[in-house]
Each structure stands twice: as structure tokens, then as C-alpha cells.
Design a protein around this nucleic acid. Structure first.
Length: 478
DNA sequence: GTAGGGTTAG
């Protein structure tokens, strides 16, 4: 699919070269003469139903019909499709197309490009797009802040948040919600409190439920569980996330009983809502049925407090009463629960029997417990599994070495320690552009000629280089 | 008709 889509590119390039000599002309043409609204509605529908491939194929057909079949709206929907499915090559082509069609200054497209690049892990290019926006509004500032948060750079996110205010752009409820998640990542309680004060002063902001939830979450994660609970109690309108955030908060603070009381209260509230719905047809309250995340909180609470039976009961109830299919994270909680109760064999059996593939994190939970309890056999088994899944990590060898030491198995301990000396510090991988192109060409069964693809890519690379972007839209490999 | 947001095992 990816390669068929690419085929259209030289066609567009050539067509453009003939039709327009300057950017200005092209802008004039697209914004005034043609409004292809019907295909755009179809593109939008595909996007809504998550049919990315259909959207891309339709867009390719539109391009083949001629560039007058598309406009800025078509481009926007396709960029969103690329963002949804994290498609770096297609996304980069869309950006090149936007530049070539003279849409670089459309703030809606620029904002979606920021979103696209940050979803691809390429925050450098996201920032570059942002820099090129002459009059930055609150939406594009927020998109960039959100990009930094999603790319695990919360410090930078808050730095941009401050820059935004220095630039006299007022944050809105979305900006503040995103900034609060940066505070959570940093444990930055003071900044979170500052945002809380700011929200209290601006009355129009206090109506936003997502923002209220973000505040509760921030206080709970930054260690101020009392304020989190106070906010929770004083929030009249609560949704599943409000309840879940508070349950997780109590779980993290080791307050398992309080977490379970909240789950019970949540169920009760939900029953009341249902009764109201039966009695008054016009009643439009939102449902607050515990979801898979709520149960992660509940299971975490049980495992942290060592409440084995309680945890098993809720795990069962989650599946039977609430129809929640357990995911890896739920099994993770259960393995943790069993391990903390010393039931290592039972934990191992659960891992082997569960219907989802275990990951290294799960095996490492077992390995950690084996370290504490001194179970060599299971530790060795977990160690092998981790190696298969993830390769060697220093921390795992430390556990093995400590188990051997505790059992007086000095030769084995020395063996592991020797291996550790050879281990290098964890590094990061990089992708070279050359090898990427090769993979790109050879991976295709139904592709245009190799030369054609190289031409397309060269053209793409040139366009992006000329505008100071990374040529292929991959995460920076430098 | 168009852009940015929240809860998730260790």
C-alpha cells in the first residue's frame, strides 16, 4: 500500500512544476477556485472509522485525477490518518506536498504537522514547524507542549509553557491539562499548585471536567493525596476518569482500603444513575462503569497491600461482572500480587497459562520476587525468558548474583559478575537513511521500478532538506 | 467541513 501511494508522487511533482512557477499562484488557485467537499467528507469518514488505508488510497486516487481534486481540508485529513497510524514516509510526503502546494502557512495544517511529527517521535521537526508559524495561537503552542510531554521531555514542555505566557498567549483548559501532565512526570508539585491557583482565578476554566481530573491526578501523583481527595470530594460532576484517578492515587499511596471503598461507592453511584434512567426517560447522566484502567488501580491497591483474596475476587469480578478482558497489565498486577504473597509457583503458572504473551516486565516481576525469596530455579527460568525477550540488563544480573551469594554459590556468583564486567552501558539504536531506502525498495512485491522509487525519495529528500527538515521524518538518528 | 487534552502492572 505504502508503495502504491508513493507512485503518485512524481506525477504530482511534475504536474506542479508545469502548472505553477511560484508559491503565491498556487495558493491563489487552491483557495479560491476549487472546493472538493464531497471527497473530503469521505476522507473524514474513513478517518473517523479508523480506515487509514482507505483514506490514503482515496487520496492517491484524488491526486491522480489532478491536484485540483484536493484542497487544504483533504491534506488535513490525510495528515491525521498518517498521525493515527504513525506513518513516517507518507507523513513526510504530505509535508512535502504541503510545501509544494504553497500551504505551508495554513495554521491548521501546521498544527497537525506538529502533532504528526511528535507522534512519530520526531520532536525536532515538530518544533521546526512551530517556529515557522508567524502568529502562534494557543492551539499550536499547546500542540508543541503536548509533543514534548508525549516524547518524555516534560522539562522542555514546561519551558515552552512559560515561553507561551511570556509571549502573552493565554493558556486555555487544554494547555493547562497538558502542562499538568508534565508536572506529574516531573513530580513538580509547586508548578501544579500554581496552575491550580490560575484555574481557580479564571472561572470559565473551572467547568472543564478533564482539567479537574488532571488536577486530581497531579496532586495524587505528586504526593499530596489529601488535596487530591479534597478536590475529588468537591467535584460535583465525576466521570470514570475522576473515579479511576482517585482510586489509582489511593493505591499508589498504599491506601488499599480507601481505594476499595471508592470502587464500592462508584458501583453504588452507577446503580443510582441506572435507576434514575429507568424512572426518567429524559435523564441524561453519564455512566460511570468501572473500566479496565479502574481495575488496574483496584488490583494495584490489592497487590501493594498484600490483599491476595480480595485481589483475586476483583480480578474475577472484572471479567464476569464487567466484561473487561484482562490485558497484560492486569496479569502483571496479578503476578505481582501472587509474588508479594510468596506464591512464586502460582505466579509462574499464571504467566504460562495466560492468553496473552508475557513481556520482559512481567518476567522481571517474578525474577525480583525470586531474588527476595531466594528461589534459584524459577529465577533462572525467568532470567532465560527475559534474555529471549529483551537481551541482557545489568539489574537482572545483580538479582541473579545476589541469589547465588545468598545461597553461598560463590562460583556462580563470580560467573555472573564477570559477565557484568563485559556488559557495556545501555545504548540506543539508530537508523541510517541508506539502509532505510534499501529496506523500502526490497520490501515491496508490487512496486514501481527501483529507479522510480529512488527518484521519488531523492525528490522528497531534497524538498525537506531545502526547508531544514530531517529528510525522511524518522526520529533523529544523530 | 479544518488544528491541541485526562486515568493504565514494575
Amino acid at each position: 500500500m505504502r508503495f502504491k501511494f508513493l507512485k503518485s508522487f512524481p506525477f504530482v511533482q511534475n504536474k506542479l512544476a508545469k502548472l505553477f512557477s511560484t508559491t503565491k499562484q498556487s495558493k491563489f488557485h487552491f483557495q479560491t477556485n476549487h472546493r472538493p467537499s464531497r471527497p473530503n467528507q469521505v476522507l473524514k469518514r474513513h478517518l473517523k472509522s479508523n480506515s487509514t488505508t482507505k483514506a490514503l488510497l482515496l487520496f492517491r486516487d484524488l491526486l491522480r485525477k489532478g491536484i485540483s481534486s484536493i484542497d487544504s481540508f483533504s491534506l488535513l485529513f490525510v495528515i491525521k490518518a498518517c498521525t493515527q497510524k504513525s506513518l513516517p514516509i507518507e507523513g513526510k510526503q504530505m509535508h512535502a506536498l504541503i510545501i509544494n502546494l504553497g500551504f505551508e502557512t495554513n495554521i491548521f495544517l501546521q498544527t497537525s504537522l506538529i502533532d504528526l511529527y511528535s507522534a512519530l517521535g520526531n520532536i525536532g521537526d515538530a518544533h521546526h514547524v512551530f517556529e515557522e508559524i508567524p502568529t502562534k495561537n494557543v492551539v499550536c503552542w499547546t500542540a508543541l507542549i503536548s509533543g514534548y510531554v508525549d516524547n518524555q521531555k516534560p522539562n522542555k514542555a514546561l519551558q515552552v509553557f512559560r515561553q507561551m505566557q511570556m509571549g502573552n498567549v493565554e493558556p486555555d483548559q487544554v494547555t493547562l491539562t497538558v502542562a499538568l501532565s508534565a508536572c506529574v512526570d516531573l513530580g513538580a508539585l509547586e508548578m501544579g499548585e500554581w496552575i491550580h491557583t490560575y484555574v481557580s482565578r479564571r472561572k470559565e476554566l473551572s467547568k472543564d471536567l478533564s482539567l479537574d481530573n488532571a488536577l486530581i491526578n497531579m496532586y495524587a501523583k505528586c504526593g499530596d493525596i489529601e488535596t487530591a481527595r479534597h478536590l475529588f470530594d468537591s467535584t460535583k460532576k465525576k466521570d470514570v476518569t475522576t473515579w479511576t484517578s482517585m482510586i489509582v492515587g489511593h493505591a499508589l499511596h498504599g491506601q488499599a482500603e480507601e481505594a476499595l471503598r471508592l470502587l464500592a461507592a462508584m458501583k453504588e453511584e452507577n446503580n443510582r444513575a441506572r435507576a434514575k434512567k429507568r424512572n426518567f426517560d429524559s435523564w441524561r447522566g453519564s455512566s460511570i462503569v468501572p473500566n479496565n484502567v479502574t481495575f488496574i488501580g483496584v488490583l494495584m491497591a490489592c497487590s501493594h497491600a498484600g490483599m491476595l483474596e480480595e485481589g483475586k475476587k476483583h480480578f474475577q469480578s472484572m471479567i464476569e461482572d464487567y466484561g473487561v478482558k484482562p490485558r497484560l497489565s492486569h496479569f502483571g498486577c496479578m503476578v505481582d500480587l501472587l509474588c508479594r504473597s510468596g506464591l512464586l509457583q502460582e505466579a509462574y503458572d499464571l504467566i504460562m497459562d495466560m492468553p496473552v504473551q508475557p513481556n520482559a516486565v512481567l518476567w522481571r516481576t517474578l525474577l525480583g520476587a525470586c531474588g527476595t525469596r531466594g528461589n534459584i530455579d524459577l529465577a533462572a527460568e525467568a532470567r532465560v525468558r527475559i534474555l529471549e525477550l529483551e537481551g541482557s540488563r545489568v539489574g537482572d544480573n545483580v538479582i541473579m548474583s545476589n541469589i547465588f551469594a545468598a545461597k553461598g554459590m560463590w562460583d556462580e556468583k563470580i560467573g555472573v559478575r564477570e559477565k557484568m564486567k563485559q556488559q557495556r552501558a545501555p545504548g540506543c539504536s539508530s537508523i541510517e537513511v541508506g539502509s532505510l531506502i534499501n529496506e523500502f525498495v526490497t520490501a515491496d512485491d508490487d512496486h514501481p521500478s527501483k529507479r522510480e522509487i529512488y527518484e521519488v525519495l531523492e525528490c522528497l529528500i531534497e524538498t525537506m532538506k531545502a526547508h531544514g527538515y530531517s529528510p525522511l521524518g524518522m526520529a533523529s538518528s544523530s
